[in-house]
């Protein structure tokens, strides 16, 4: 059985700031991490491997050269091998061009597979579109927001517990299929130092546009139907008056004066 996990490297969201002049993300000094939902998908793949040790697990990502770090994290967690789709021609891809490139790579590089796992969305773009688009392009069933799964009928079918607004729903489909994953362990896993060292000896293959039989006008910016025109932070509501609290007594006086002047007290 072969499980392919499509992952993305994202900026650590807690630290992201937007340059007010250019409207672009300030990436300087911001760490990049494996998208948390992709990490859940990796955990799910590893769960299958624990139950069915013969399972082969592959992580795949499209991104700049630095995205190797996110794939390395997958390998440290226990994924068998990784593929990075890296080429200047892939740059500027919207969700459709990304999904098309990943789908083409899955066919061209891997050929057969039983299951594709993706995170439900990336925490930078939050579109949640790439996973479903891959399944549409490949013509396989998709189940969104998976939180648990069970292989059935001698691994010909899969039963997935998925989140819905009112609770959980259990659905079943035949393999191959694609599942987007929305929940993982409450505590992120930690690798051993041995696993960190071993990961560096695992296969991490770099694949360029030339390795894929795909037209240049279908990938990257050229192949994108949508374009990000501008990114801007939501307008900050006007803040109230802030009293200097270093002298609590004086601050309290100011506060009571303020409140009484407006007849609140």
């Amino acid at each position: 059985m072969k499980v392919i996990v499509c992952v993305k490297q994202v900026p650590e969201i807690a630290e992201v700031q937007i340059d007010p002049e250019t409207g672009t993300l300030i990436r300087e000094g911001v760490d990049s991490i494996l998208n948390p939902f992709c990490e859940y998908a990796i955990e799910m793949a590893l769960g299958i491997k624990r139950q069915h040790p013969e399972t082969e697990t592959v992580a795949m990502s499209m991104g700049p050269f630095q995205a190797k770090a996110a794939l390395m994290r997958c390998l440290e967690m226990g994924i068998d091998r990784a593929i990075l789709l890296v080429d200047k021609r892939f740059a500027g891809a919207d969700t459709w061009a990304t999904a098309l490139t990943l789908a083409e790579a899955i066919i061209a590089i891997e050929g057969c597979f039983d299951l594709i796992l993706v995170g439900k969305q990336a925490i930078d773009g939050d579109t949640a579109q790439v996973g479903p688009e891959i399944s549409e392009i490949l013509g396989i069933p998709e189940i969104m927001y998976g939180v648990g799964l069970e292989l059935r009928n001698n691994k010909k079918k899969i039963r997935v517990t998925r989140e819905i607004e009112t609770g959980n729903e259990i659905v079943e489909t035949k393999l191959p299929c694609l599942i987007s994953v929305s929940k993982g362990p409450m505590i992120r896993s930690i690798s051993s130092f041995q696993e960190i060292l071993d990961a560096r000896n695992k296969e991490l293959r770099l694949v360029t546009a030339d390795d894929l039989a795909i037209d240049d006008d279908k990938i990257g910016l050229k192949g994108s139907f949508t374009q990000v025109v501008k990114i801007f932070p939501p307008r900050v509501k006007k803040q109230g008056e802030i009293f200097d609290g270093s002298d609590a007594h004086a601050a309290a006086h100011k506060l009571t004066d303020f409140l009484s002047s407006r007849r609140f007290i």
Binding site: D31, R73, S192, F193, I196
Partner: peptide, 14 residues
């Protein structure tokens, strides 16, 4: 012991 019986991490958040 062995290096497999360890926890290790290098990302800043970890």
């Amino acid at each position: 012991s062995s290096l497999s019986r360890s926890w290790a991490a290098y990302e800043l958040r970890d």
